[in-house]
Design a protein around this nucleic acid. Structure first.
Lengths: 143, 143
DNA sequence: GCTTGACTTAAAGTTGACTTGAGCTTGTAT
DNA sequence: ATACAAGCTCAAGTCAACTTTAAGTCAAGC
């Protein structure tokens, strides 16, 4: 397949495919002149990469998993990520409840509302750099 | 309070406080010479900002909420965010289940495993730019 | 009176995952 | 044979939320 086909099949722009190749996440099987050729299984690989990304792995982590010696992926890593997701989910659930409450709450000042204060404490734990997460998936692909 | 006190009380570095002020998220009440003075309620405001950040609002969105005219613009926004969190939580839960499964699954190739394939489809939906989310909260504050 | 240290500003740097642009090359259709 | 859309490379740009750095100000303690 040429890069355009892979792009279409995977939904990723060609630039991303080149980028992934450069990072060692995928491989092109050869060239037709200058042009990259990919074998069909790159699609699976890309699906796996998408999966990893959605689960919160960085590209570097995903790359490590692919080069891991054993035929099986790093189980401990997977489980650790799953546990991390559990914690994240709990936090997000609290947030969601808090937001819903805040939207309804009659208290003149949220700081007088115990529910809100509890929320605040949870938020307080979540003190890390959060670049810009969980934002809208605008499809600007069309531009 | 001077900036050091606010920093201590809020846990945020002074640089962040200046940054937030520049962004219009907080206000200093005046100066002592060059030095900013803050009133105590900036602490509450910062807690609110933290809360918003944890809930997935961007700083710009938080800024808008603070300056929003109508009282129910907030409500709609809060509810929308809560709904968004619901969707996110569902996705993350699927991811978590998938990861746990992948760590256990005996299938020679995950692509032969129906559970895994289902996971992949969910991941596929999650096709947006995800900068680098949900990562570790290393406390590098001490440096 | 001078050093020190906490503060100030403005500008540039950081991170991760890409995207974009400039300037070439080339397979393919006419 | 030639035009041109699609590929290519390499470098630089983007975004968000900060952090870092350089250079300067200033009150207080010795």
């Amino acid at each position: 397949m040429d890069i355009a086909e892979v792009a279409k099949a995977s939904g990723l722009p060609a630039s991303t495919l080149r980028f992934y190749e450069e990072k060692g996440l995928i491989r092109s099987t050869g060239r037709n002149g200058l042009r990259r050729l990919f074998s069909a299984n790159v699609i699976e690989r890309l699906a796996l990469i998408s999966l990893g990304r959605s689960a919160g792995f960085s590209l570097d982590e995903i790359g490590e998993m692919f080069t891991a010696k054993g035929p099986d992926i790093n189980r401990a890593l997977l489980i650790a990520k799953a546990d991390e997701l559990d914690r994240t989910i709990e936090e997000l659930a609290s947030m969601r409840d808090g937001l819903r409450h805040a939207a309804i709450c009659k208290a003149p000042n949220h700081f007088e509302c115990p529910k809100f204060l509890r929320l605040l404490r949870i938020a307080g734990k979540n003190r890390g750099r959060q670049p810009n997460k969980l934002k809208e998936n605008k499809l600007k692909r069309g531009v």
